[in-house]
Design a protein around this nucleic acid. Structure first.
Lengths: 195, 195
DNA sequence: ATATAATAATACTAATATCGTATAATCCAT
DNA sequence: ATGGATTATACGATATTAGTATTATTATAT
């Protein structure tokens, strides 16, 4: 898998646009080659099969995702700001891999691909949980909250933020995020003084 | 092809949503059955094969399209109003069959399906041309314009109206249609008096 | 210009997927 | 309970796709 080759990128790009549109099952190698403007032989030079392409794309997506996440998490802003920025990030990247595509991948029933995704999920959860625990140590979050609960709740939150029934209640997404964030940090009790 | 059966509609609906999303080639009969919640045998009871389903859907679309068109064309409003309403109709129905789907159908290389579409195109052109000629007789349109040119130009117009480069020039689609319509009816010369 | 490496084009077989049908089991209204 | 419709399952025939081998073409460096 030698990277930064023009052909390699062409194949990856073509595969991504096709996979993201139709799922993996429906797309054939030859189709990818055609869109990439590359012969089948060249494709097999870089990837052993369709799964390998999908695996590469998913891992690449994960890596760039973690990179963006870490950039925000390690930046020198308040915790509240970080959470807000992370939510913004997640919302703007919502199209990156839709639930529909994930479902399609699972339906595709490829052992290796499913494992890759499970593995990535575990790694992401690990990263998040570590950071939550760190935040607890730093006094940013109440320590009597289970990190796992917090993570679960955050996931739920991002789902809520794309739910049209909620979105419709606010004049714009910004307003919605501010209100949800405020609830997330301070609960429903009247706001206390200071931080 | 007995219509108004529950199963029949389920199959047609499932096929439509799948075809419209992925094109015809990528979708299998069994997949349609699964989404429709119907067994394969039942599917074959109503349709002899995938092409037959697609053909039915396309013809149905055409018929309802012609119906909407005729409703507007035969209504008791000015010609200018009719054209505006027809453009509105076409724009709101733009998703009904995208150029992308049409391309996909041609790529699918099914003789019967291509013939069906060609046939429908011809019938639509016939209807439009007849109505244009009638409008010329009624004095609604200059008689020194070839009906075929007018039809060609109208098609071009509707394409323009979905072109983002044009859409971006106006605060809203309404404004755009008004300006384009005005140009269509009166050309670029300063507006004359009366109709 | 020529040799060399990379890529494309073509053809091909094996594996896989899909089609379309037959059959038996199941559901469901009367 | 019975008949009609539907499903579930299995199946062979067909079509598609995967992956590889071979030859032709193109690009590139010398």
């Amino acid at each position: 898998m030698e990277k930064q080759s023009e052909k390699f990128e062409a194949i990856a790009g073509a595969a991504k646009s096709l996979f993201w549109k139709h799922g993996i099952r429906r797309v054939t190698i030859e189709e990818i080659c055609q869109v990439a403007g590359v012969s089948k032989m060249t494709c097999y030079k870089y990837f052993s099969n369709k799964t390998a392409i999908a695996k590469y794309l998913i891992e690449e997506l994960f890596e760039s995702g973690v990179k963006s996440y870490k950039e925000i998490y390690n930046s020198d802003i308040t915790y509240e700001e970080k959470v807000k920025k992370l939510i913004d990030l997640k919302m703007s990247n919502a199209h990156e891999m839709s639930q529909e595509l994930l479902d399609d991948i699972y339906k595709y029933q490829d052992e290796e691909l499913s494992e890759t995704i499970e593995d990535i999920k575990k790694r992401m959860i690990g990263i998040y949980l570590d950071d939550i625990r760190e935040a607890q140590k730093e006094g940013e979050i109440r320590t009597d909250i289970k990190p796992e609960f917090m993570l679960y709740f955050l996931n739920n939150l991002t789902e809520m933020l794309t739910d049209q029934r909620l979105v419709g209640l606010y004049p714009n997404p910004e307003q919605m995020i501010i209100e949800v964030m405020s609830f997330f940090f301070y609960g429903i009790m009247p706001r206390r003084n200071g931080k």
